Amino acid sequence: MAAAAAAGAGPEMVRGQVFDVGPRYTNLSYIGEGAYGMVCSAYDNVNKVRVAIKKISPFEHQTYCQRTLREIKILLRFRHENIIGINDIIRAPTIEQMKDVYIVQDLMETDLYKLLKTQHLSNDHICYFLYQILRGLKYIHSANVLHRDLKPSNLLLNTTCDLKICDFGLARVADPDHDHTGFLTEYVATRWYRAPEIMLNSKGYTKSIDIWSVGCILAEMLSNRPIFPGKHYLDQLNHILGILGSPSQEDLNCIINLKARNYLLSLPHKNKVPWNRLFPNADSKALDLLDKMLTFNPHKRIEVEQALAHPYLEQYYDPSDEPIAEAPFKFDMELDDLPKEKLKELIFEETARFQPGYRS
Rank of each mutant, 00 (worst) to 15 (best):
T190C: 04
I209V: 12
I217L: 12
P356W: 00
S57H: 00
A325S: 14
L252C: 08
K207D: 10
F168Y: 14
E71Q: 02
V49Q: 10
K138M: 10
C254E: 07
K117G: 12
M333D: 12
Y263V: 11
E109G: 03
P93S: 12
R172H: 01
K54Y: 01
D106P: 01
W275H: 09
I198A: 02
P152F: 02
A352R: 13
Y64E: 05
A9N: 00
L265M: 12
A143P: 05
D337T: 05
T68R: 02
A352S: 13
E345H: 03
L156G: 12
Y128R: 08
D251Y: 15
S248W: 07
L150G: 09
P356K: 07
Y30Q: 09
P93I: 00
N271G: 02
G182P: 12
D332C: 01
E220L: 08
I133G: 03
G204N: 07
V145F: 06
E341W: 00
R77S: 01
S360C: 12
H61M: 01
G215F: 08
D162Q: 00
P328R: 06
M38I: 15
S41D: 02
I83R: 00
I89K: 03
Y128I: 08
D318V: 14
A307I: 00
C65D: 04
T190F: 05
F354P: 02
M108N: 04
N281R: 08
A7C: 11
F129G: 05
V101Y: 10
R194M: 11
L252D: 05
P298N: 02
I243Y: 02
M108T: 05
V173P: 05
K342P: 02
F329D: 04
D149C: 07
N257A: 06
N123L: 09
V304M: 12
Y36I: 10
L241P: 07
Y131A: 02
L289D: 04
N271W: 07
S29D: 02
P226Y: 03
G215N: 09
K99L: 00
C127L: 11
A219I: 10
A174Y: 04
D251K: 04
P176C: 11
L346W: 02
A6P: 05
N253S: 08
Y187F: 15
R91E: 05
L75F: 02
L76A: 01
A327Y: 01
V49W: 09
A352M: 14
K231D: 00
K164R: 12
Y131I: 02
P93T: 15
C216Y: 13
F19W: 10
F129Y: 14
D149Y: 15
D332R: 06
N87F: 03
Y128P: 02
C40G: 01
I72E: 08
K272W: 08
D337I: 06
L338N: 09
K55C: 11
D124G: 03
C127T: 04
V46R: 06
D88G: 03
P311Q: 04
Q119S: 02
T110P: 14
A35S: 14
N201T: 07
Y233P: 05
D100Q: 03
